[in-house]
Amino acid sequence: MKRLISISLRLLISGVLLALLFREHDLIADIAPRFRALLTNWPWMLAGIVFAFLSLFLTATRWHILLRGLVPHLPFGMVLRAEIVSAFFNISSVGVVGGDTYKIMSLSRRLPGKAIPVSVSLVLDHLAGLVSVALLFLGCMLAVHSRWQEFGQDVRLLFTGYGMYVGGGVGGMALTWISFKPNVLAWGKRTFPRTFGHPKFARILTRMGQVNEVFTLLWRRMLSATVVSTGMHVAFFMSFYCGLRAVGGAAPLLDVLTAMPIVDAAASLPVSISGLGVRERTFEALLAGLAGVPEAVGISASLAGWMFNLFWGVVGGVLFLRSKHTQIIAPEARTA
């Protein structure tokens, strides 16, 4: 029942937001002509689809770098396939099975006994993404800092709020890493023996120890993953820049790269279906405030960028329907 209510609410929110957008900007008069421009500006449309795939490819590369620290013989093709299929679940996530859930299930099925390392590696994968997008946003903000007073109050508020959000995320990541260290856990056991000695808490401590072991094993690989992740974010953001150009709009590339971390964060909130409505409203507001892009153009560009990524979600859905589950047997298991 709770699942049905959650799905219904997300469908309702997306529907209401899109209805309001299309009411403010007539779908037939303002939006549809922009989509007809996709046929004329087909090189930008093709570039957007290519950048969307490049984003998926680099996302798979980032996770593969981390997974190779746990399973050296893991083929990259398997990780890339899981990433493309997960795009289908991310795009069509009306239920509880999202892209991350699929990736954990898929790789755990193929790597017997590796469920916890696979899950932790995916957490590290997202942490590398958080660090890289924080660095990218910081670089963009430094580049546009001289124009700060030209931005409207709403735009400055969004920038400030996102900066606090991503900065807090990076700080929380560092605090979590310190908390999981064995000497910190040992101090907790000595200081709070009754609490830390409780059977339920003891299981949590055991899991925290396992997580720390994976952290310790993979932290060097996180540096490489963070570099790759920066390219991944740029490729994903470029797909929306191509969407803007494909619908006949124009804005400085730096402005789009500055706005997109906030747009992506807003779209990832679990309040709508695939971010629909939320993404368009945020993209519209930021591009209008940063570069004076007409609101109808901003909405059309956001939908076009989403469609470029939707294309690979459909491809992922086809791969999922045709998939045959196999297992990679670890070398030590074959020799046992």
Results as ranks from 00 to 15, higher is better:
Val16Ala: 14
Gly298Lys: 15
Gly168Ser: 10
Gly248Phe: 01
Phe196Ala: 13
Ala225Cys: 11
Pro261Lys: 10
Pro331Glu: 04
Arg194Phe: 02
Arg279Pro: 11
Arg203Ala: 10
Ala250Leu: 05
Lys200Tyr: 06
Gly231Glu: 11
Leu223Phe: 14
Gly231Val: 11
Leu257Ile: 04
Gly172Trp: 11
Gly292Tyr: 14
Leu253Ile: 14
Ser121Leu: 03
Ala301Val: 07
Leu321Asn: 05
Val97Ser: 01
Cys242Trp: 08
His198Asn: 15
Arg220Val: 01
Ala246Ile: 05
Val71Thr: 02
Leu4Thr: 10
Thr326Leu: 04
Gly289Asn: 03
Phe88Gln: 05
Lys189Val: 11
Ser239Met: 12
Leu130Met: 14
Arg334Gly: 00
Leu122Ile: 14
Thr206Gly: 10
Phe196Leu: 13
Ser92Val: 13
Asp125Gly: 03
Ser93Leu: 04
Lys324Phe: 08
Val118Asn: 04
Val170Glu: 09
Leu38Glu: 01
Leu21Ala: 06
Pro199Gln: 04
Val263Glu: 13
Ser106Glu: 02
Thr206His: 08
Val94Ile: 15
Arg281Ser: 11
Pro294Arg: 12
Pro182Lys: 09
Phe53Tyr: 11
Trp42Asn: 08
Ala267Ile: 02
His198Leu: 13
Ala266Tyr: 09
Cys140Pro: 01
Ile329Pro: 07
Ser323Asp: 15
Gly98Arg: 13
Gly197Asn: 09
Ala336Pro: 05
Ala60His: 10
Phe311Val: 14
Ile328Lys: 06
Phe35Trp: 04
Arg221Gly: 08
Ser274Phe: 12
Thr226Gly: 05
Val16Glu: 13
Val314Met: 10
Val247Lys: 00
Trp187Glu: 09
Arg281Thr: 12
Ala225Lys: 09
Phe151His: 06
Leu54Pro: 02
Ala333Trp: 07
Val247Met: 01
Ser146Pro: 02
Trp42Ser: 14
Glu284Arg: 10
Gly197Leu: 07
Leu205Gly: 12
Pro252Tyr: 08
Pro294Gln: 09
Ile328Phe: 12
Val297Asp: 13
Val293Asn: 08
Leu135Met: 11
Trp187Phe: 14
Glu284Phe: 04
Val123Asn: 00
His64Trp: 15
Pro112Thr: 06
Val314Asp: 07
Val314Asn: 05
Ser119Glu: 01
Leu218Ser: 01
Arg194His: 04
Val50Asn: 10
Glu280Trp: 06
Phe151Glu: 03
Gly305Val: 03
Ile91Cys: 11
His25Lys: 12
Arg68His: 02
Ile28Phe: 05
Val263Thr: 15
Val131Ser: 07
Pro331Trp: 00
Ser6Glu: 07
Met307Cys: 09
Leu157Gly: 14
Phe180Asp: 03
Ser268His: 01
Tyr241Leu: 14
Ser92Met: 14
Gly48Arg: 04
Trp177Leu: 13
Ile329Glu: 13
Ser224Met: 11
Met105Glu: 00
Ser132Gln: 12
Arg281Phe: 12
Phe192Leu: 14
Leu18Arg: 12
Thr282His: 08
Ala37Leu: 09
Val85Asp: 00
Gly161Glu: 07
